[in-house]
């Protein structure tokens, strides 16, 4: 069974936000009213963690892309009362929108605040109602989050199964990795020792958020600097 993982090279990342936009379009993530977004109702599956340090004029801004880390031992799935979030055999942490009762316990339990909630019924700009037909749209009152574009995996799996071959490295990549102009997001099967992800995850520059929590995130960050 493959184990899908992501490497984000912060040294390469320019902080342009293409991954955020690519993700939003790919996954039909609702665009929230600006006032509501300011009040903390903004919806990103791929979020850009932005912090500004120092005082003007000597400030510097850190931008780190943050998807769901798809932990191998996810704290969110443990607490779900109805099994609406679960870890599938390939290690993807998934959401079942139609089972979710909206208690938001998984959001409270996630150490990385990776989940977002549909505070209102999502509204769509005229003409954008259809969006990506491969991804189901969510309704008011349910939790959603990054799926590592699992709909793409399904498509790739079908072709690979038909041709009776394993999925090749780089065949299945999520929208954020695809849209990154700096090639800072690398995605693949970390069990495959030939893959880029495997190689990069062994880099001396690697670190993971929440390393000490024992949740085993599958998103690895690369940075020469230690203060990211």
């Amino acid at each position: 069974m493959p184990k899908w993982a992501m490497v984000i090279d912060v040294d390469k990342c320019t902080g342009c936000g293409a991954c955020v936009v690519g993700c939003k379009m790919e996954n039909n993530v609702p665009i929230v009213d600006p006032v509501e977004a300011q009040n903390g109702r903004v919806m990103f599956w791929m979020d850009m963690m932005t912090t500004t340090e120092g005082t003007l004029p000597n400030t510097h801004t850190k931008r780190v892309p943050k998807p769901c880390f798809h932990c191998d031992d996810p704290p969110c799935t443990r607490v779900c009362p109805v099994g609406a979030t679960y870890r599938n055999p390939e290690g993807l942490v998934a959401q079942i929108y139609h089972r979710c009762i909206g208690c938001r316990y998984c959001m409270a339990a996630c150490p990385f605040t990776a989940k977002v909630y549909n505070w209102y019924d999502p509204k769509w700009i005229d003409g954008a109602e259809i969006g990506n037909p491969d991804v189901s749209r969510r309704m008011v009152g349910v939790v959603e989050k990054c799926s590592f574009c699992s709909h793409r995996l399904m498509k790739v799996k079908e072709t690979a199964d038909l041709e009776d071959r394993p999925i090749t490295d780089g065949e299945y990549i999520p929208a954020c990795a695809e849209s990154c102009p700096a090639e800072a997001i690398i995605f693949g099967n970390i069990e495959n020792t030939e893959s880029d992800v495997y190689r990069l995850s062994r880099s001396y520059r690697v670190f993971r958020y929440g390393e000490g929590l024992g949740v085993e995130p599958k998103v690895y960050y690369l940075a020469r600097r230690t203060d990211v």
Binding site: C80, V82, G83, R99, I101, Y105, N118
Partner: peptide, 17 residues
Amino acid sequence: GRPDRMMHLLEAGRLQS
């Protein structure tokens, strides 16, 4: 958020939660 699905607690309830 979805009180209409409250019965999922009985139908699909996870005692681990």
